[in-house]
Amino acid sequence: MKLTPVSAGHFHCDGGALFGAIPKVLWNKVYPCNDDNFTQLTLRCLLVEIGDRKILVEAGIGNHYPEKHLKNNGVTSVDELEKSLIEKGFSATDITDVFFTHLHWDHCTGAVKNVDGQLELVFPNANLWSSKTQWEHAKISNPRERAAYHRQVLDYMMESGKLKLIEKEGEWLPGFEIKMFDGHTPGQMLPILHTAKHAFVYTSDLFTTAANIPVLWISAYDLDPVQVMKEKGEFLKEAAAKNYILYFEHDYYTECASVHETEKGVLLKEKFRLKELL
């Protein structure tokens, strides 16, 4: 198994939304914001090579949104994903699979592009993967979450015949394990990637940033805060016991981190760059 970070650009969100009920005087010390209260986030995808499979975890945002929407969300680039792949020695046609942890706009809509008003697949040779639970939820959702789904893009993925649905957690491919979490949104899938040296967890929105590791530091975007706290608490104990390395999709400042048990619960232990661990 080979792991390669791939960038799909950057964006931002309100610090109060990122940390929910945690007071700004606390979170701003560990994850700073600008004068408008915006915290800088990134879209850090991951290319996983297993045998002849080249699996891209997440696909970023893409070019579907009006300029006002992009500006309001601090989106810096709508075409960085393909550029980043090329810089790492790959092309869009090399990708065999695109794995979506869930179907919110910042995680999956970059797998489709708008070309003169027509939708096209960015990765024409790839199957696209979502959990069945998340796909079914995305169709009904609720007023609070509905804006996070781009219905036209999702329907296009399904109608293309490329979108496949995963029904259960466990080993998906050799060394590529899936765990399901429902608090942020039903059917969120986190990959656990078992390499020769470490097990890496692609944290998606279970741990948006390293600052979100403490159980109570949860996002206002989470649909079920109580469920998120339960899932985080249980998984953090597993991560500490099994020495997992957390790989952050959205943390602008921290790529990877380890955790350990303390008197105050499981907390951040050490920060790393992925290349230091491979």
Rank of each mutant, 00 (worst) to 15 (best):
P186I: 05
H64I: 01
D36V: 02
Q40D: 08
K264Y: 13
E145S: 07
Y253C: 02
E67W: 06
S130K: 00
W27S: 05
A59G: 11
V98Q: 06
Y247F: 13
K2N: 12
W217E: 07
L43N: 04
G51K: 15
M180P: 03
Q152P: 04
K83Q: 15
E80C: 12
D35V: 12
G60C: 04
K88Y: 01
S130V: 14
E276P: 00
L246S: 11
V266W: 09
G74M: 03
I86Y: 12
H104T: 14
N73T: 11
R44E: 14
M1N: 03
G9N: 06
K88Q: 10
K29Q: 15
L236Y: 11
E87M: 06
S131C: 00
H10F: 10
D97I: 01
V30Y: 11
V226C: 00
Y244F: 15
P66W: 00
H64D: 04
M1G: 02
K71Y: 03
Y221L: 04
S131I: 00
A211F: 04
F207S: 02
H198K: 08
F272Q: 03
T101G: 14
M158I: 15
K197W: 06
F99M: 09
Q152M: 10
A138G: 02
R53E: 08
A241S: 15
G20L: 08
D106F: 11
F200S: 11
G20Q: 05
H198R: 09
L206K: 04
F19C: 11
V228M: 07
D52M: 13
Y156A: 03
Y252L: 00
Q227I: 03
K54C: 07
N73D: 13
S141R: 08
K162M: 10
R146Q: 15
K237W: 04
K24W: 00
A211V: 01
P124G: 09
K2P: 01
E58P: 01
C256Y: 10
D35N: 11
F90Q: 06
E261S: 14
E270V: 00
E177C: 14
I245F: 14
T208E: 13
Q134N: 12
Q40E: 07
D116A: 14
N243T: 05
I213L: 05
G183L: 03
T185Q: 04
A111E: 06
E159N: 15
K168V: 07
H194W: 08
